[in-house]
Design a protein around this nucleic acid. Sequence first.
DNA 1: TTCGATAAAATGTGATCACATTTTTGAATT
DNA 2: AATTCAAAAATGTGATCACATTTTATCGAA
Lengths: 237, 237
Amino acid sequence: MVSSAPLNLPVLAREPKETTNQWVYRSLRRAVMIGLVPPGRALTIRDVAAALGVSAMPVREALRRLSTEQALEVRDNRRIMVPQMTASKFRELCELRISIECHAAERALPYVTTQRVDDLTAIDRRIDQVNAAGDREAVTMFNQDFHRHLYEANPNQVVMPLVESIWLQLGPFVRLALSKLQDFYQVDRHSEALAALKRQDPLALRIAIEADIRDGITHVGTNELLKAYVESAGQPS
Amino acid sequence: MVSSAPLNLPVLAREPKETTNQWVYRSLRRAVMIGLVPPGRALTIRDVAAALGVSAMPVREALRRLSTEQALEVRDNRRIMVPQMTASKFRELCELRISIECHAAERALPYVTTQRVDDLTAIDRRIDQVNAAGDREAVTMFNQDFHRHLYEANPNQVVMPLVESIWLQLGPFVRLALSKLQDFYQVDRHSEALAALKRQDPLALRIAIEADIRDGITHVGTNELLKAYVESAGQPS
DNA sequence: TTCGATAAAATGTGATCACATTTTTGAATT
DNA sequence: AATTCAAAAATGTGATCACATTTTATCGAA
């Protein structure tokens, strides 16, 4: 079987003080998160290096970093690929995400100022805008911004790296699955979260965050999502 | 100030099929976990490479991996070091650890067989042995084995990498602090956990795991531990 | 055709080097 | 003595190469 399409990676704009390393990492991360790299397709160092026009060195480190973050998987063959998703693994990731993010929200709550609530409200409005415009990718990104900006109210940050790892693992699958959905947001759980923040109500906040996550991912039923995903996925090596 | 002692790293035995990369990673990880690398001390690639007798390449990747796992910190200067611990960050890490591990235990519970309970019991006995012998390092390692073996009952593993990251961040500090303690285990929380596993009792399991973690870290009071830690720590660059 | 063995190509790994940035050193000035 | 600033040393980054392992292609036998 001829597997390889020439690996068309979206080349992100390179920021001013950024090292090649960081730039390659951002580009690869974005590609994985968007679902551009099919699971089971081997990511070779030389291919990625050629696609981005750099040497092997920064690519090696970016691939290893993403592997450490569980976004990629290093097989015994030393081949690196996007891990295959299964229904039960997906469920496990969702429950873990809910557990960690509810914890993060609760630990952030005491530090949330009215200024931050305003910022969050602004982000929420932007989500509504891009959602109305049908821009699913922007919805995903701004939604992540909303959650990140909430959790980072806590000045002693230890949870965000773990959350980002889970987002990365769910990312490619959710993206692919979301394209099959009709209406993304039914109830605005963010409003409920914002209300809970204003009242400094931990329990209500947890409930809103959990509902928000479930709505965003699981409310149409895991099976359909997974089916759409598996159908579009490649075979393992 | 002359900062650098010659960086004496414990060289682990190299396993049969292991790449230099993995070996360097294991060695460095162990050194960090044990608290051999003082916070604030810069870890230079060439120093580590010289200490381990390898080239810069595997060291670079090992350092980056540990940075991704939050065990090391990459400063703006591009210098890499063990992050400084603070009282509030420590508290945050403990609460996060409890939250995640309770979740992990609960999700593992349905998959725990009598065979696994037997294995866990055996590990627990070994903990008692090395604890009686006063071998604190072995207690730490076997204690981690106990928790890992419990959570890995769940065949859809997504939580262990995150747990390992937290252990890594707490590791150097706990090690240092433990040396100040008299009796490590007062109540055997593992017995309570094992009983809960046999009864398939989720709530009792959560309570036992939380109590175990708190006993192991926080019961003597965070402030004393931190004081002992900070006193032994180096200055930031 | 199908299967298996061998050769050829591709790939990951580790080492070395050049260069830009950062840190340290050391002397000159106040 | 303290400070400043330029030279020197140290360090991280990125590129290139050789080599061992793995994958793929090729050819011959059942």
